[in-house]
């Protein structure tokens, strides 16, 4: 039986206009990703892999073409509707962790839940549960500045899971980590893919890392070549 598609990109193009010069970051991309798939988007810098992830992650909208997310066209949505989609359906992990500096690990993890209108008590309970799962039971009340890079990325992973989204998107999740910590983070991401069946999409320029994923989407000059 053919698996249901979670992402369906139809002729997606993205053109940036900077100082009068048009840059084609994506050229007529057609791509589908099935529900529960674990895929890596690879390619050299400037190949359009980050732009692709931003559009798939509803952080940006295509210049032309359609992005169908679980059967729903999201390419024409307003900013606040996109914010709603991101909040509920997509968990992000960034290269630079992007935790809020003034907040503790618990508060950082519960933030997307609070944006969703869930009360402090319930959100923190869920945050504690997730922080335990990523192995940070000792670091709950620490602020980002008091944690190592690997620990901060674990907090970010817990944060990406807090609203129980169907999709996890990780943009160079090991880019700022040493190789041993990088492997630990990848193990954690793969483990959660295996245990939860969530769709996981990783963007990386590291071929060794991308080989861990069953499917590689290689980008070159704004188009998937493989």
């Amino acid at each position: 039986m053919k698996k249901e598609n979670i992402f369906d990109l139809r002729d997606v193009s993205k053109v940036y206009c900077m100082k009068g010069v048009e840059t084609h970051a994506l050229r007529n991309v057609n791509l589908t990703i099935a529900k529960g798939e674990y895929a890596a988007i690879i390619g050299p810098s400037g190949s359009g892999k980050s732009t692709l992830m931003h559009i798939m992650g509803c952080l940006d909208t295509p210049t032309s073409g359609k992005l169908i997310l679980e059967g729903e066209d999201v390419s024409e949505m307003e900013d606040d509707e996109l914010a709603h989609v991101r909040r509920e359906r997509i968990g992000f992990v960034f290269q630079t962790y992007n935790l809020i500096p003034g907040l503790t690990a618990i508060e950082n993890v519960s933030l997307p839940m609070r944006f969703n209108g869930i009360g402090k008590g319930e959100a923190q309970k869920r945050a504690i549960e997730l922080l335990n799962k990523v192995g940070l039971s000792e670091r709950m009340h620490h602020k980002p500045s008091e944690m190592s890079g690997g620990e901060q990325q674990r907090v970010a992973i817990a944060r990406s899971l807090v609203n129980d989204p169907d999709i996890i998107m990780a943009d160079e999740p090991t880019g700022n980590l040493d190789s041993k910590t990088g492997i630990e983070i990848m193990d954690l991401i793969e483990e959660l893919h295996k245990n939860t069946g969530k769709t996981v999409i990783i963007v990386t320029h590291d071929k060794k890392l991308s080989k861990r994923a069953p499917r590689q989407i290689e980008m070159l000059d704004g188009k998937p070549v493989r």
Binding site: G57, L59, D79, D80, A83, H84, R86, R87, E88, F92, F94, T96, N98, L99, I100, P101, L111, P112, F115, N116, R159, N163
Partner: peptide, 16 residues
Amino acid sequence: KRQIGTMKALGATSRY
């Protein structure tokens, strides 16, 4: 800027 962008990526609305 980065913190605000992160909050928006995590689903905070412009109004928030």
